[in-house]
Write a protein that binds this DNA or RNA. Sequence first.
DNA 1: TTGACAGGTTCCGTTTCGGAACCCATTCTA
DNA 2: TAGAATGGGTTCCGAAACGGAACCTGTCAA
Lengths: 167, 167
Amino acid sequence: MRWEELDREPCSLARTLSVVGDRWTLLVLRECFLRVRRFEEFEQRLGIARHVLADRLKKLSDAGVLEKVPYQERPRREEYRLTEKGLALYPVLQALLDWGDAYMSGSEGPPIIRRHKSCGHAMHAVQTCSECGEPFGARDIVAELGPGAQGEMLPSGIASPKGSTAK
Amino acid sequence: MRWEELDREPCSLARTLSVVGDRWTLLVLRECFLRVRRFEEFEQRLGIARHVLADRLKKLSDAGVLEKVPYQERPRREEYRLTEKGLALYPVLQALLDWGDAYMSGSEGPPIIRRHKSCGHAMHAVQTCSECGEPFGARDIVAELGPGAQGEMLPSGIASPKGSTAK
DNA sequence: TTGACAGGTTCCGTTTCGGAACCCATTCTA
DNA sequence: TAGAATGGGTTCCGAAACGGAACCTGTCAA
């Protein structure tokens, strides 16, 4: 596959990466979740080249992840805000953050801690099964072809809908 | 910040992206979780340029996410396997997959479904608080400076350890 | 009239990527 | 015993993306 065709791949991961999978996009979104909204502030906090920032903000807006909302007229100025679709990326950031906290923190510990408003504790994310509520890891899941599948998507030895599960 | 210095940023997200944040790495890891292990199979399934693949596999091995294990001698052949550190990236892939299923699937539905071995249901991931077990979203969390913090990391208006919480 | 501010766009030189060709040790096949 | 196949790369070239700096565009204040 080529990079520009990622969004047409029959794979939700590839399609997601076609939106957030390049060099700066997830860092821009980190700032969005920290309530950064204006061009200059993104630029200052990230140290990103201006035209690259402009490109990323445009692509995220086109994808419906951010929206431009005017905050003054004359001269017209607009800021970038997360949409619901953008807010739904929070678990992605959480998962990246948790892995970094666990494997990339120095001896001092993580640079930022997250506090759960309702219970008041410093926390990290635990992924649980939407159906039974139990925590799970890579070894607890099998992949199967779904309704939107096409062609040879799973390597040999992996379960298909009607086949047997992989050993 | 510049891209080559990402791993020295005081931010777990930036540090994680220094390992998995470039064009092909997460797709390579998707294949790893589908039990793809050999150079040729990565190449065929991804359609990635060979030297880019070689570079990504080397970087992931250097980072301790994959390890090369010999599967035959004479001629010596090695395959790439996820380490525990690599397996710990599963929540990242899950989160990306869930967002793609929710926002990037066509009318047919998601191309791959995940089945939870222990409960038997097709499932997606739900992130819950490690402390109280409740599901949470972006609006339920506040960020605070942690032990590894340095300098101006949070935008004005965001809580610091001793300050008040952001509105 | 000049300067500042916010939000870009343009230009240029350096990296990275995509695609194809080539390399190398070993084993299989004719 | 020659030649092809296999698996895992490396090398080379032109195209695309990036980093940095300069420039542009409304509007308002001094």
